[in-house]
């Protein structure tokens, strides 16, 4: 029961622009092709046929930050990589979201040392944290669904 059943009879549906725009954004997120470590392997299998991320409208991994809305930080970020990551984030057009995939991206994980950023939220604002070392594809899909729920509730005024 939803839009498609009403469409036939009514011809016109009224809804708020915010709802319509968020619905469009939710179901066509283009993630950036950006893997840093072993989590990237799980990210690849999430996109592959067994788990098939394209069920959620996210099959298109873009190799350019200019064309992506979502950055999945898959792996540990070294201090040398941090400026590069921030640069890529700044190059993404708004609206944009970030998923910290795995323990290393979320909080540094086992790498509590001088070379690794203790959580990618030190350099970019993170929307969803996915736990696991590395997270299974189901966990990443769960994180993406959480992000979709979040986008649906976002006020339109957030990205201005």
């Amino acid at each position: 029961m939803g839009l498609e059943q009403k469409l036939g009879n009514m011809g016109v549906v009224t809804m708020s622009a915010e709802k319509a725009i968020n619905w469009a954004r939710t179901n066509a997120i283009w993630p950036m092709l950006f893997g840093l470590a072993c989590c990237a392997i799980e990210m690849m299998s999430t996109q592959a046929s067994n788990y098939d991320l394209s069920r959620f409208g996210m099959e298109l991994m873009r190799a350019s930050p200019r064309q992506s809305d979502l950055m999945i930080v898959a792996g540990r970020v070294s201090r040398k990589m941090a400026p590069v990551l921030r640069n890529l984030y700044d190059q993404m057009p708004e609206p944009k979201w970030v998923i910290a995939m795995g323990d290393c991206a979320s909080c540094g994980g086992v790498f509590n040392n001088y070379a690794v950023i203790q959580g990618v939220d030190e350099i970019v604002p993170v929307d969803v944290y996915v736990a696991g070392c590395p997270p299974r594809p189901e966990a990443l899909i769960d994180g993406i669904l959480k992000l979709q729920d979040k986008i649906k509730k976002e006020p339109l005024t957030k990205w201005q």
């Binding site: 540094g108 509590n112 040392n113």
Partner: peptide, 15 residues
């Protein structure tokens, strides 16, 4: 970078 990270006077953990 400042310093030389593998010298023993550095702390093992940063956080």
């Amino acid at each position: 970078w400042e310093g030389h990270p593998l010298l023993k006077e550095n702390p093992v953990k940063v956080e």
